[in-house]
Simulated assay, not measured.
Amino acid sequence: MKILAAMSGGVDSAVAAARAVDAGHEVVGVHLALSRMPGTLRTGSRGCCTIEDSQDAWRACERLGIPFYVWDFSERFKEDVVDDFVAEYAAGRTPNPCMRCNEKIKFAALLDKAVALGFDAVATGHYARLTRDADGRPELHRSSDWAKDQSYVLGVLTEEQLNHCLFPLDDVESKAHVRAEAEARGLAVAKKPDSYDICFIPDGDTRGWLEERIEMEPGAIVTPEGERLGEHRGAQAFTVGQRKGLALGRPAPDGKPRFVLEIRPKTNEVVVGPERLLAVDTLTGRRVSWAGRPVPEAEAGLPFEVHVQVRAHGDPEPATARVAEGDDGAARLVVDLHKPMRGVAPGQTMVIYSGTRVLGQATLESARSAEFETAARAD
């Protein structure tokens, strides 16, 4: 097959490309330039798409003896990831920019261009497994190494996209094995640290970065019952579950810390309360998509048992899911948790699993706590 290897500049993508070469594929490496001002992206171990990453990707391709190109996706990245991040926070939600980057850039814009150029598939260094059902349709599964499993961030992929994906690291036992393999192959990135955090916020100060892009208006910090406790500088800079930075000046009556429970953009209020009110019972998601064939119950509107995960490194929790129609006529994924989940915020992505298989995902529209709603109705 003719394979386009997405080269981030890290050890995983380098080994994935090497394995694709070993498998006999015709491989071409490409690195994505995601900013026209590289200085605005994180560097060193905290980056994933900087100039130094591009150089590391080029050196890996040189070592493997495959062609290397840099594709400029900076405009798409700004529109689909950075601007979306700002818009979501402005609406009082907490987005996951890495999920949006996978959905819109790495497995939409990149894959579309690859297919248009005649490539059969895009290979990446993600830790995940791709299998086929009895009818030959793709199924996305967790990696053999659950500790490094990245199927969560791939939950946004559709069946058509999975048909053009290749995950050569599907059988690795651990990240240590990947590094050892890279070193044995003479790849300079063998000991390069992993990337993390938001690449387009250089200093890690998300609040300060947002304040430069969103018009912040002072407003009230209130209890679920409506009691005013203090004032904030801008509701959009807060996130559900946040404890620090409230600056209320006085403790709760029981002396325990308060946490952000809800952001209310319409009234510009930040609702705070005890930690126990962060536990939610029901999750409702919009922008539903399926990673392969939906289970029959989903297509029929019937409930089905799943495990749901709301963070890349979070624990999957048992739940009952169903597909319902929202007020706007679009599909909603409704998940009733078997036990409450703590600190879930609208804007996060929930990915549902059946065993190791990724069924699909949705962007959280609401996370409901029966106790919190009872307290709020008392207002």
Rank of each mutant, 00 (worst) to 15 (best):
L169E: 13
D171T: 12
V172R: 13
E173Y: 12
E173L: 15
A176M: 06
V178Y: 05
V178I: 15
V178T: 15
E181Y: 01
A182R: 13
A182H: 01
A184Q: 15
L187F: 05
A188P: 07
A190Y: 08
A190N: 05
A190T: 06
K191M: 11
S195C: 00
S195L: 03
Y196N: 01
D197Q: 14
C199S: 10
F200D: 06
P202Y: 04
T206S: 12
R207N: 07
R207T: 05
W209L: 07
L210G: 13
E211C: 08
R213Y: 02
E217Y: 11
E217I: 00
G219W: 13
I221G: 03
G226A: 07
E227Y: 00
H232L: 05
G234F: 07
G234C: 00
A235Q: 08
Q236A: 07
Q236F: 03
F238I: 07
F238K: 08
F238S: 00
G241N: 06
Q242I: 08
R243P: 00
A247P: 09
L248E: 03
G249P: 04
G249E: 07
A252P: 01
P253M: 00
G255C: 11
K256A: 08
K256R: 15
R258P: 01
R258T: 14
F259A: 02
E262Y: 14
E262T: 11
K266W: 08
N268V: 10
E269H: 05
V270I: 15
V271P: 00
V271Q: 12
V271F: 02
V272S: 09
P274A: 07
L277V: 06
L277I: 09
L278N: 00
A279R: 00
